[in-house]
Simulated scan of single mutants.
Amino acid sequence: MGPCRLFNSLTGRLPRGAGLFCRRLAGALILFLLTSASLARPETPHQQDLDQLRADVKQYLQAHYRIPQIKQARVTVGRLDSRLRLKACEAPLALSVNDEERSGGNLTVHTRCPGPTAWALYVPAEVAVYREVAVASRSLGRGHRISPSDMTMELRDTGQLRQGFVVDADSALGKELRRPLKAGEPIRLGLLTEPTVVERGDQVRLRAQTGNISVDTMGTALSSGRVGDQIRVRNDRSERIVRGRVTGPGSVEVIL
């Protein structure tokens, strides 16, 4: 029951000017109720939650490095400036990182909000990627030819290693070292070279080929070489010195 109806029911009549007062009072009450209801409704967030953004980046990186070759990946997302103000993204964030080899280390994740509230930024992160890599099981000298007993596989943070670490021990077997290695030092492809298959003074088989015709004879290597190297060879029959390309152990193809 309104205040004016209550007063009228008690006195039987309204005083002069009470009608206008009652109408104004009713309008004020309606305005108050509408304003109260508006204040009670929670405001829609207008800014991007930076903690959630960092959580999304971490989840993305964990998925990016979840491959069989990686035994473990530890992701640390850098902090963002608390003064950063971004509009709340209504669409899922688009994330990308420039690390196709998945070697980890310090990197940045390109984080983009598509749609009408478009924005983009780079989020810093650090990923420690642990893989099994080949390391020297003992000290090895320059020119040493790698055998299975020279290597052991250990779990290492590859982000702290130089590129070219060996993850397949078989790929290093039979190769020679360009420089000495200490025990426990990772074996890198850049330190390996093909083995010498022809030594100076070796008897080698010389092959000369032109078209469909090939001629084989024996010769003496005047220098050492690896597969693909060009060396000087003396033809034992003609005593002529020729140049040839090493094609395998004890085998040289004459360059015509």
Rank of each mutant, 00 (worst) to 15 (best):
I231M: 06
Q160R: 12
V75Q: 03
G190F: 13
V252R: 04
S82G: 07
F165N: 01
L61P: 10
E176M: 13
L177C: 03
T44V: 15
S149A: 12
L256N: 08
S149G: 06
R5H: 09
G174M: 03
R79Y: 09
G250F: 13
A94H: 12
K71G: 10
L256W: 06
S171C: 03
Y65G: 04
V198M: 03
R156L: 15
Y122N: 14
R237M: 12
R145S: 10
Q230C: 01
Y122M: 07
E194N: 14
T111K: 05
R179N: 01
P15Q: 05
T11I: 10
V135A: 05
W119Y: 09
A18M: 10
V127W: 02
I231N: 01
S96P: 03
R240C: 01
M151D: 01
P249W: 04
F7Y: 14
D202V: 03
M1I: 13
P148D: 08
P92S: 05
V129C: 03
E90G: 07
Q59H: 12
P114T: 04
L107I: 07
R85H: 11
L80C: 04
P180W: 10
E43S: 06
V167R: 06
L121Y: 10
L155W: 03
Y60A: 09
A136P: 06
D168F: 02
P114A: 09
Q52I: 14
G201L: 09
D229A: 12
M153W: 06
R138T: 11
V227L: 11
V242F: 11
Q47D: 04
G12V: 04
P249L: 11
A91R: 14
R243A: 06
V215Y: 08
V123A: 01
H46L: 14
C113M: 06
E43H: 00
H110F: 07
G12I: 06
L256E: 05
T35C: 08
G141Q: 13
G228M: 13
R41C: 01
L161S: 04
R16A: 14
D51E: 14
A208K: 10
P45K: 00
E100M: 07
G143L: 02
K71I: 10
T44N: 02
H110R: 13
V127H: 03
P3A: 08
T247E: 14
E90Y: 01
D99I: 14
G105R: 05
R226G: 08
A94V: 15
G19E: 14
I70E: 04
S38R: 12
R162M: 05
S238M: 04
E90S: 13
Y60W: 11
A172N: 04
V242K: 00
R188D: 00
V204I: 11
I70T: 05
R41M: 11
N8W: 14
L39K: 01
A40M: 06
R162D: 11
S147T: 15
C4K: 04
R5P: 00
H144L: 07
E185S: 06
R5G: 00
G184I: 13
A172M: 08
G19W: 09
K58N: 08
R16L: 12
